[in-house]
């Protein structure tokens, strides 16, 4: 097996005494899209920020993040800066606030091109126009002079995608890039991301809480619950045949995924708070299958396909 592009091993993130992410492991192969799914507060965004070394200073990160074999967690600020935008780029959830309101679209793009490719002046301008065209912005040369407040949310997200890709990264981290957009725009942005990923043969970590979106863009799916990995496997397999009771519950609560029951079910209870995780398996208070051991012992994730559960749902034969 060839070395994966990104390999995360036993990544734990704490803020003081609060443990937000606990021993998270996953990897992304070259050209692969991993969908990272979970409810709000399960540690998705924190994990993605840790991949770029962007967590606030008080965050305590342990474990290993390897990109192409290079350990990232021990990097200093300057070395991190050479990773950001050039090897790992990021698209954020809210395009309304991710652009500097005082700088024009052109300035934004030319700056990234200057920093990462050393392209300046007229060359940077034409390159920037090319990128705007590539992300589907109509009349790109005129749009160069526009300021963020003159663009719609979808247009701003396209600009942000153009900036993320202009550094020619190996890995694109997309943190809920369509959540803040209108439904019709969501589909366009998803298509755009999927197409550009293929064209540029990048890998992508796609973070979302929307299983429908994952089905559309991802090759593999990792389900996160309460800061821990619940399940990780090929997307069709996990969606068709969830092994972790949480994944099963999640799918049962979304229309269109579980035709067999016919009715939508909700998972009883609520996601526990990071300041008071339950003992043992963190899902046990909400799990129908829970038994004594689930209350005391943390389930050890199995090797691929990964399931972290004492009593996984049986595979249908």
């Amino acid at each position: 097996m060839t070395q994966p592009l990104l390999s995360v091993r036993d990544l734990s993130i704490r803020f003081g005494s609060t443990e937000v992410v606990d021993r998270l492991s996953f990897s992304i192969a070259r050209g692969e899209t991993l969908g990272l799914v979970g409810e709000s507060g399960c540690g998705k965004s924190v994990s993605s920020l840790s991949l770029l070394g962007l967590l606030p200073r008080q965050a305590e990160v342990t474990g290993s993040i390897r990109l192409d074999g290079q350990e990232l967690t021990s990097l200093g600020q300057d070395a991190w800066r050479r990773v950001r935008g050039r090897r790992i780029a990021m698209v954020f959830q809210d395009p309304m606030t991710a652009l500097n309101p005082l700088l024009s679209v052109g300035r934004h793009l030319e700056e990234v091109l200057g920093v990462h490719q050393g392209i300046r002046g007229e060359a940077a301008r034409s390159e920037a126009i090319g990128w705007l065209d590539r992300v589907g912005i109509p009349d790109p040369s005129r749009r160069m002079a526009s300021h963020p407040h003159e663009l719609s949310g979808g247009m701003r997200q396209r600009v942000l995608i153009a900036m993320a890709l202009a550094g020619k990264p190996d890995l694109l981290v997309a943190d809920e890039p369509t959540t803040a957009l209108d439904v019709t725009i969501q589909a366009q942005i998803l298509d755009l991301l999927a197409n550009l990923r293929r064209e540029l043969s990048m890998s992508m970590l796609f973070i979302t809480h929307d299983l429908g979106v994952v089905e559309q863009v991802a090759d593999r799916l990792a389900v996160l619950y309460a800061g821990r990995l619940a399940e990780d496997g090929p997307v069709e397999q996990v969606l068709a045949q969830p092994r972790h009771p949480y994944t099963e519950g999640l799918l049962g609560s979304v229309p269109g995924f579980r035709p067999r029951s016919g009715r939508l079910r909700s998972i009883p209870g609520q996601v526990p708070s990071a300041t008071a995780w339950p003992q043992g398996c963190r899902f046990h208070p909400r799990c129908e299958r829970a038994q004594g051991i689930c209350r005391t012992d943390t389930p050890v994730p199995t090797p691929a396909p990964t399931i972290a559960c004492h009593f996984p749902v049986e595979e249908a034969t």
Partner: peptide
């Protein structure tokens, strides 16, 4: 957020 985004661009 745009400052975080700018950091993320390296």
């Amino acid at each position: 957020p745009y400052i975080l985004a700018a950091r993320a661009r390296g």
